[in-house]
Design a binder for these strands. Structure first.
Lengths: 337, 337
DNA sequence: AATTAATGCGCAAACCTTTGCACAAAATTA
DNA sequence: TAATTTTGTGCAAAGGTTTGCGCATTAATT
């Protein structure tokens, strides 16, 4: 049935015609006679002919490959993004190749270099936490390889971007707290080198200001996401006595869960003594007793689909130079009543 | 700096030498004079020359691509497997392309076909829940494309396989229940068309038998994983009166969580009236109050790394025909005391 | 009947690289 | 000095496909 390596040459020889005729016949080129076309088609079917994609790639100078760099696959948020990207990529006949930077700039650079070498048709990336130097991104742009940043976006770097309406989410979250009579609202943010932290901070400041609440540098802390560091910062909050915050906006649900646990260990009742709101809205919260009172849903799958769509557009338009920036909606999901 | 499309031809023309000389110079072929080599190297550097991978692939008839089919990326278990695969693939210079079957055999077949067309060097797959016909796998094997099944493995299909020691885990879990004086142990399994369900069932039967416990068909139910179906089956268990099980082994943590919630809604106290154990041991359980008393950790990242390693071996050996089967350890993690 | 148009097909270049073989010039040996 | 080896380079094929151009043959037009 299926011979080892069937090429158009095989078919041409078998039929005693030239390979160009075979090629055209297979593509329904009108210049080929009906009878010849028939014979070619039939034999191709019979031999189970598959055009060699590598040869095609060589021809059209495209690989049909999309590169996706993700800090980690072991976090719900990112793997959901990947899911969205995969859907759009495969719908459009692209293959998706995935790599984890594991939050290392060095690894990130290596991945980007390998994508360049492989001549991928486009790249999507959420930058590593420690990425400080953008030379690898400049290189990509110089080579005119379409590039989309999603979620974790480098500061002051012109490019295509897809990001959450974090600021809006932050404002909504704080309004929620305000309406529950919380007035001493603090922020437990992520590392300050992440732009996504900036957004939360800005949203916090904006909301606090517009609501006429008072804040102070003591009310704004950052955590490196670890359980230990988060607990440490919570202890500082708890120890503030009179000024102790009555609500805390956390970087994400995991931070909130760690913070809540720290409360429990210090006999502070979460969502009574101190209310918690956070970002990401991981589905599993549904089963958790001591969870944040509300969480900002970020629709990660949509972040993925939008990124992929933007990249595909960019590829189609041949990098016209105009960068686009897409904001994915957020919505406050209320857990406790 | 970096010209548009630098090939060895560009360099050859610039230097007024032939492309073959350039090619050899770049590869330190001893037949090329030192001076010529120098000049070539220098210009290649200057022009930022990158060998075209597609042309190379065309030459060596390899693509450096590994295909990975996963039922979904939106489940922790699978995204952790992907993480493991990614690590090994990139360590070995392979690109990993990923697709979700979304538990549809049709989609699965399309993916496999696209992998064949793309001439990937190897394929890893966890089959869709509704996959009943294996013709697409036969096709892959006929084309001598190395193939590894992981986790969800088709029944009676000779191939490379990587699976969890589910049976061992099941036995361990039931022993755990036995030592806590549970004697009426039931099984809330996954759909019976999944082999991973078979394994749980066999482990259950084996353990129950060796412990001299009694069971009955009523003690063995299956769920389609949905909240509704799981709640329904739990209600049946709860309604059994005298015979109501005092412990239930659940297919995975999500099933257990749904089951536990059903208990709560019927004033049955989980892990007192009915104990729960399950599989997967998702990390988030740490934060959950009403969780299974114990869960069988399956080390999904390791399932991924082992699958990738096995596939790479298979590729190296050129599909010698001998299939290997790898078992990944499991370990019962106890949550409640 | 003679010119033009349409039809059917093949040649060869292009995409980029590697590599066996051949050829010339230089260096070595007899 | 003549014959042989070494050294440095180029030609061309191979890997698989597409496509512009050209060459026949046949059909249509005047």
């Amino acid at each position: 049935m299926s011979k080892k390596n069937v090429t158009i040459k095989t078919i041409a020889q078998e039929l005693g015609i030239s390979i160009s005729t075979v090629s055209r016949a297979l593509k329904n080129n009108p210049r080929i006679g009906a009878e010849t076309r028939e014979r070619v088609m039939k034999l191709a079917e019979e031999f189970n002919y598959i055009p060699n994609p590598t040869a095609l790639n060589l021809q059209n100078r495209r690989t049909n490959l999309l590169g996706l760099v993700v800090p980690t696959l072991e976090e719900d948020f990112f793997s959901h993004i990947v899911s969205g990207v995969e859907r759009i990529a495969s719908q459009n006949g692209f293959h998706l190749i995935i790599n984890q930077s594991r939050d290392s700039m060095l690894t990130e650079k290596e991945i980007i270099q390998s994508y360049i070498s492989s001549k991928v048709d486009g790249i999507m990336i959420s930058v590593a936490a420690d990425t400080s130097d953008y030379s690898h991104f400049v290189k990509v742009q110089n080579l005119e390889i379409p590039l989309v940043f999603y979620d974790r976006i480098p500061r002051n770097f012109p490019s295509n971007k897809v990001k959450s309406e974090i600021l809006h989410g932050a404002v909504e979250a704080i309004n929620f707290l305000f309406h529950r009579n919380k007035r001493k609202i603090a922020l437990l943010n992520g590392p300050s080198n992440l732009q996504v932290s900036d957004d939360r901070l800005n949203g916090y400041l904006e909301a606090v200001k517009s609501l006429g609440l008072r804040t102070s540098p003591q009310y704004i802390k950052t955590t490196d996401f670890s359980r230990e560091d988060t607990a440490l910062k919570m202890e500082e909050f708890i120890a503030m006595g009179e000024d102790r915050p009555d609500a805390i906006v956390c970087f994400n649900d995991y931070v909130a869960l760690h913070a809540i646990r720290a409360c429990l260990e210090h006999s502070v009742v979460p969502n009574r003594d101190i209310s918690f709101v956070s970002f990401a809205n991981i589905g599993i919260c549904e089963f958790i007793e001591n969870r944040p009172a509300a969480s900002v849903e970020q629709y990660p799958v949509k972040i993925g689909t939008e990124s992929a769509r933007l990249l595909l557009e960019s590829i189609q338009e041949g990098e016209s130079g105009r960068f686009r920036e897409i904001r994915v909606e957020t919505r406050l999901v209320i857990h406790a009543d």
